[in-house]
Design a protein around this nucleic acid. Structure first.
Length: 651
DNA sequence: TCAATCCGTATC
DNA sequence: ATACGGATTGAC
């Protein structure tokens, strides 16, 4: 029922008029009269008798006989709504695209050359054939646990893997291998990718592996008609493989054999609309319902992925140490320099000499150079003036901030002042504000390297690839083009802005971005060099030097366990006007041992409270938050509150 | 005594 | 939300 009220998030029985008897099937959209008005609704089931005591009304109208909500997706949506303390209707809005009547009438054109059968799915090739994209050339065989994982997919077993892609890996080809193996085993697959460029890459690889018309791309960027067409191809069972951005996470693929996501640490996987589900969580929930295999891959590893390994839920697939040595570029830090460390502005205004000479050598060798610079707009935060670790509240481990220059720092979570702060790492007592530095421009680099083409790839214009010729390519994280044959040098600049962000995940995020860029460099043996302008003693820098995302993720997860952060604990944030937040908290029956943090100011003069519980109480907390939202909405609360479970921005 | 209004509760 | 019912209030 499409009513935006928490306490009405339940089933209602309606009589079906005789003339609609055929069309009204589970999964169809209907219109019903509810509390005097006509609202949209979903047919979840047909039953002979109702348990409802009062008198039943008739359905008003069948919107379409197309059963767009499959039983599996309905169940999944309910589970997602429960986990995120949200409404089923909200999740269904995310799961089923708006109807497009014309598309529904048209016969679907698969663009098939001929009928393909599952048995003909190609076997993963041992040799790479990539036309441009870098590759290790060994496929899944480069990973000791790789072939067994593919076999499990072919045998339709529910293997669950966290995959650390080797530097230079053509990850899209490996995902295509995994999808082909799943299809070969007679089952379907859903793959979620961060952005359109990644979708294109996998699309190309899949077309190569499966042939035309065997898979479909589902992204919000397609627009309403194409999106609904792609959706119908899946819900009608015309294709078994759906790939796309997070819009694809609910794709109605029957008999799901593989749920996969690439680079799950990328924050674009978090849905910005209520109830704010994360694609990784949705896919894991799906996998738990069916006998579905899971593939979480990336050059980096998220804390959540690490948790899956440590709890034994998933197994890791990593390259052998020798394979990593063979394919990794040589990474050198350029930032131990005390001078650079003391002054962030100086560090970003000048290209350190090592970075400059490395880039020049790569250009002279006839190879392109990638320069990664962070996007603008990071939040200022406070860190130790001596060792630069982010300053955290001694009480609740929230981030400290300076209310005004020279003032006592205070916690942004619990509001407690942190007078006499001493850094837990180096005992330093002075704090520094880490403000956003000036962004290096492509023009500046052009001056540094005259006679060399400087290209940019970023928010406005994203390049997919660049040729194997000397050029300086300036890119923001996530927009790095793939270079034919790999980059001769990769420079990671302005690392300060990343590392000192007032964000729980800043170190993990920095490493994720660095590894993704560094993975595009040639192997060290072919001259591939990476210069990271950061202190070589920092953990994420160490992880990059050693190319060991697993080591870092393990450390990171241990830290989060210590501090009581997700994913080792479950947090919920309640945001709204002070009055609304107080109202919700008054209605909330806190689980035992739940911790309340805050209030802290949020955007637009709003207020935010955090609730923290152990993971074992996570479901109970979500249930009670739903209940509290229900009592509030039943009392016709005027002001809205936003409830988020494990929000990414735990400021 | 009747209607206008308020409040609480249910919404099939 | 909207709709309805029962209680409450106020004017004749």
């Amino acid at each position: 029922m499409d009513v935006p009220l928490a306490h009405l998030d339940r089933l209602f029985d309606y009589l079906v008029p005789a003339e609609l008897d055929d069309g009204v099937r589970p999964g169809t959209r209907v219109r019903v009269r509810f509390a005097g008005q006509l609202v949209g609704g979903w047919v979840l089931d047909r039953v002979a008798a109702s348990g409802h005591d009062g008198k039943l009304a008739f359905l008003d109208k069948l919107v379409s006989p197309e059963p767009v909500l499959t039983a599996e997706v309905a169940r999944l949506a309910r589970a997602v709504a429960d986990r995120y303390a949200g409404h089923l209707a909200d999740v269904l809005r995310l799961a089923v695209p708006p109807r497009h009547a014309r598309v529904e009438q048209q016969p679907y054109d698969l663009g098939l050359a001929g009928p393909a059968d599952d048995q003909a799915a190609p076997v993963p090739s041992a040799r790479a054939d990539r036309g441009g994209a870098p590759d290790t050339g060994h496929g899944w065989a480069a990973y000791p646990a790789g072939p067994a994982f593919l076999r499990a997919l072919t045998d339709a077993r529910a293997a669950r893997a966290v995959w650390a892609a080797l530097p230079g890996e053509n990850w899209a080809a490996r995902y295509a291998d995994a999808v082909a193996a799943t299809v070969g085993g007679g089952r379907g697959a859903v793959v979620v990718l961060p952005d359109g460029r990644d979708v294109d890459r996998l699309d190309t690889e899949l077309a190569r592996r499966l042939g035309a018309g065997r898979h479909v791309v589902l992204t919000a960027a397609l627009g309403p008609a194409k999106r609904y067409r792609a959706f119908l191809a899946a819900s009608r069972g015309l294709v078994k493989v759906v790939i796309g951005t997070r819009a694809a996470m609910f794709a109605p693929v029957a008999d799901l054999g593989l749920a996969a996501i690439w680079d799950d640490g990328d924050d674009v996987h978090a849905e910005p609309r209520a109830p704010y589900p994360h694609a990784r969580d949705v896919l894991l929930t799906r996998a738990q319902f069916g006998e579905t295999a899971v593939l979480l891959g990336g050059y980096a590893r998220s804390g959540e992925a690490q948790q899956l390994i440590e709890t034994g839920w998933a197994r890791e697939i990593v390259g052998a140490r020798t394979a990593i040595r063979r394919s990794a570029p040589l990474v050198t830090p350029a930032g131990d320099d005390a001078q650079l460390a003391r002054d962030a502005a100086a560090a970003t205004a000048r290209l350190p000499s090592l970075a400059f000479t490395t880039a020049r050598a790569a250009l002279q060798a006839g190879t392109p150079v990638l320069v990664q610079v962070p996007r603008r707009g990071y939040l200022p935060s406070v860190s130790c003036a001596q060792c630069r670790s982010p300053a955290r509240c001694p009480h609740c481990a929230g981030p400290l901030a300076l209310p005004s220059a020279g003032a006592t720092p205070a916690c942004r979570w619990c509001g407690r002042p942190a007078a006499g702060y001493a850094c837990p790492h180096c005992q330093g007592r002075r704090l520094r504000a880490a403000v956003t530095g000036a962004r290096r421009t492509a023009e500046e680099l052009g001056r540094a390297f005259p006679d060399t083409a400087v290209r940019t790839s970023g928010r406005d214009e994203v390049l997919a690839d660049v040729p194997a010729e000397p050029a300086v390519v300036v890119a923001t994280p996530g927009a790095e083009p793939v270079a034919a044959g790999g980059y001769g040098a990769v420079l990671l600049l302005d690392t300060w802005a990343l590392l000192t962000r007032a964000d729980l995940r800043s170190a993990e995020e920095a490493l994720r971005r660095w590894l993704s860029a560094a993975a595009l460099a040639r192997p060290a043996a072919d001259g591939g060099r990476v210069v990271v302008v950061a202190d070589g003693g920092l953990a994420p820098v160490q992880a990059l030097l050693r190319w060991d995302p697993g080591w870092f993720a393990g450390r990171e997860l241990a830290d989060r366990r210590e501090l009581g952060f997700p994913p080792t604990a479950r947090m919920a944030s309640v945001t709204g006007s002070a009055e609304a937040v107080a109202e919700l908290l008054a209605a909330l029956r806190l689980p035992d041992e739940a911790e309340l943090l805050g209030p802290v100011p949020a955007a637009d003069g709003q207020e935010r409270m955090l609730v923290r519980v152990r993971r074992s109480q996570a479901a109970e907390l979500a249930r009670r938050l739903r209940e509290a939202a229900g009592t509030r909405s039943a009392r016709k609360a005027a002001q809205p509150v936003r409830i988020q479970i494990d929000p990414l921005d735990l400021l």
